[in-house]
């Protein structure tokens, strides 16, 4: 880890009075409304919510790809006005450059910064070594497994030493076994680099296992429904997922999301609440319930 200089903790994300809407033929559509979130320096924060709730929209606004309709996004007090290497991003679809080798992918950010070739090659090798990928530096991404691709994706995002790391359902396309390993790798890297992480997922177990704090979003238009601190001690083990503490957190978040998912499926269903869901679970469709 000598290659990466130790920095004073930074990467304070602040999202205030945030809303985002886009135009459609039926008029403006509210995607996210009245949202405040923050990530303290070095903190690991997840956002969970029903699908389509705008959690990725929120993340893309922090990355600088989307402009908020109202409100502001700041990192360390500086207003976010566009994408920058200060905010590394990891995508669900890996989004590695197919025409670059693994090492060239990792080098990309350093190349953009104008670092000389030999220097960035050395830096990329060190980082790939940490991720256990040194043997694959000359491979093209196409030849790698999903888990390996995403490790390259994470290493690439970290290579420029960003203040914050943004991850948009990064392990969503991976099988359960690989996902557990990737969670461990991400946790290790986060703890070593002391970087702030904002992590979007729909997997509640994943959010609890990884995070210091979890934001739960409402159905569209998305806003923050609840903020749940995760007091589980670190380092966390896989076995913790069976502990009563973990299960209690899981139950709590589950019911929050369940309410919102039902709401997202249609206004009337939400009136039925839990009862509607129980009946559905016993093999009847929601349409029949209605």
């Amino acid at each position: 880890m000598n290659e990466i200089p130790a920095k004073a903790p930074q990467g304070h994300i602040e999202v205030t009075n945030f809303s985002l809407s886009y135009d459609s033929i039926e008029g403006p559509v509210q995607a996210v409304t009245d949202t405040q979130i923050h990530v303290k320096p070095g903190e690991f924060v997840s956002i969970v919510g029903p699908s389509g709730c705008g959690k990725s929209t929120l993340l893309n606004a922090v990355a600088g790809f989307l402009k908020p309709t109202t409100g502001i996004v700041t990192v360390d007090g500086e207003r976010v006005s566009g994408p920058s290497a200060e905010r590394g991003m990891v995508f669900q679809q890996y989004s590695l450059f197919p025409w670059k080798t693994v090492r060239e992918n990792v080098e990309f950010g350093l190349k953009m910064r104008g670092m000389p070739r030999s220097q960035r090659e050395r830096a990329a090798r060190t980082l790939l070594g940490l991720a256990g990928l040194e043997a694959f530096e000359k491979h093209y991404p196409e030849k790698l497994s999903g888990g390996m691709k995403q490790r390259v994706g994470i290493v690439r995002a970290l290579a420029t030493g960003p203040k914050v790391l943004l991850l948009d359902e990064p392990f969503g396309a991976l099988d359960a076994q690989t996902r557990v390993i990737m969670q461990q790798i991400l946790t290790n890297m986060w703890q070593r680099l002391k970087i702030s992480v904002l992590f979007v997922t729909h997997d509640i177990d994943e959010a609890i296992f990884l995070s210091d704090r979890v934001y739960c979003m409402t159905a569209r238009p998305g806003s923050i429904k609840a903020e749940v601190p995760i007091p589980l001690e670190r380092p966390r083990q896989q076995s913790m997922m069976m502990s009563s503490e973990f299960l209690a957190l899981r139950r709590g978040l589950m019911s929050l999301i369940r309410e919102e998912s039902l709401k997202a499926m249609g206004g009337e269903i939400s009136d039925l609440g839990m009862r509607g869901l129980d009946i559905e679970l016993h093999g009847q469709s929601l349409a029949e319930v209605l």
């Binding site: 679809q93 989004s95 990309f108």
Partner: peptide
């Protein structure tokens, strides 16, 4: 061209 690749390049500092 996959727009996600363009975004990936942007948040790695590419102009």
């Amino acid at each position: 061209v996959d727009p996600v690749l363009v975004r990936a390049a942007q948040c790695l500092g590419a102009r």
